[in-house]
């Protein structure tokens, strides 16, 4: 009957901050395991590698918030990354404008593919799992077709390409904060703002929370779903371009399995797959947790296959913790 009066406080603390605690624990473990971990060099590298996943995860979160799922993000990323790699040398002019056109075109094409997802789901009532599964194989197929299955290389000395690879490999003069990371921070800030401070964001969450109620409140549910998929497509293409910028090559195998990492990041961050719950910042913590797990294991030279197993276990642990926490919270 009587319980330890301190217990609810501790439990709710663990519930509220469990992913932060997990992140902190991972940082501590990493620092202890390797002297190289807590160097700016390593941290910046880690963040640079995580930038595409961060972008895709934000798009995934938008879709998950509306109660959907987007499996096509990895394939759309491949198309975005390859498209830019192919378009840069093909353009009749060079330089920053050319790059902007390429990037803009790539993102727009990603948005178009996302919009097709959105139309199938929001307009035709197709299950998002099915619609985006179809898009996943179609976009991947298109990526292979465009390149004959080969990586798309571009001349390194092309001015347009130099700006792109410079963006991918260099950073803010002085501290060296990588450009892609800076760009991701801007995108994060934008979507934190959109989700928290605009009616659109609020209604996107509401749609996932109770679609029927939102529809019966006279609001166009289809629009929030459609936009979420469209934005997810755009962000995925942008993520693919970031990959091309970092690796200086566009390949059709970019982003295989990326959708799973993005879903994992959302779920670790506490997003509900049934929709209506999840935040950008917590999803980014999820991205960091995923990245750190990989980084630790690389530092410890754990081979790639066991890494996958360990990653899966940690995802399960994270979600279990939240489940236990949520149950405890309900009792409180």
């Amino acid at each position: 009957m009587s319980t330890n009066p301190k217990a609810p406080g501790l439990v709710s603390l663990l519930v509220t901050y469990n992913i932060y605690i997990m992140l902190a624990a991972l940082v501590v473990i990493s620092t202890l395991l390797s002297e190289h971990f807590l160097t700016l060099q390593n941290l910046f590298n880690l963040l640079r590698q995580l930038a595409p996943l961060a972008l895709v995860s934000i798009g995934m979160l938008l879709v998950i918030l509306t109660g959907g799922i987007d499996l096509s993000v990895g394939s759309i990323a491949a198309i975005g990354g390859m498209g830019v790699a192919m378009a840069m040398p093909a353009l009749p002019f060079d330089g920053a404008t050319a790059l902007l056109i390429c990037v803009f075109g790539g993102v727009l094409f990603g948005a178009l593919l996302g919009a097709i997802n959105g139309a199938l789901v929001a307009g035709f009532g197709m299950a998002s799992f099915v619609a985006t599964l179809a898009m996943m194989t179609m976009a991947r197929g298109l990526a292979y077709m465009l390149s004959n299955g080969q990586p798309v290389r571009f001349p390194r000395d092309l001015p347009t390409a130099q700006i792109l690879t410079g963006f991918g490999s260099k950073g803010l003069p002085g501290i060296g904060l990588p450009w892609p990371v800076l760009a991701v921070l801007v995108v994060i800030a934008l979507f934190v703002f959109l989700l928290r401070r605009t009616n659109w964001g609020r209604l996107t969450v509401a749609t996932g929370s109770n679609e029927n109620a939102v529809r019966l409140a006279g609001l166009p549910v289809w629009r929030y779903k459609f936009l979420a998929f469209t934005l997810s497509g755009a962000l995925s293409a942008l993520a693919g371009i970031f990959v091309t910028a970092r690796t200086a090559v566009g390949t059709p195998v970019t982003g295989i399995g990326l959708e799973l990492d993005a879903i994992a990041a959302c779920v670790i961050g506490g997003a509900l797959l049934s929709g209506g719950r999840g935040t950008v910042t917590n999803t980014m913590i999820g991205v960091l947790i995923l990245g750190l797990i990989g980084n630790i294991m690389n530092l410890m030279s754990v081979p790639a296959y066991p890494q996958q197993i360990i990653k899966g276990v940690i995802i399960i642990l994270a979600v279990l913790m939240q489940g236990i926490g949520a149950r405890a919270k309900r009792r409180v």
Binding site: R197, N210, A213
Partner: peptide, 28 residues
Amino acid sequence: QGCLLDLPILNNAMLTPVNPHLGFWGLI
């Protein structure tokens, strides 16, 4: 159908296409 059970009262109250309290561009 009537309520968003997981969301705050405030969000429920503002669940309408005619929300006079919004600013430009749907700013809250």
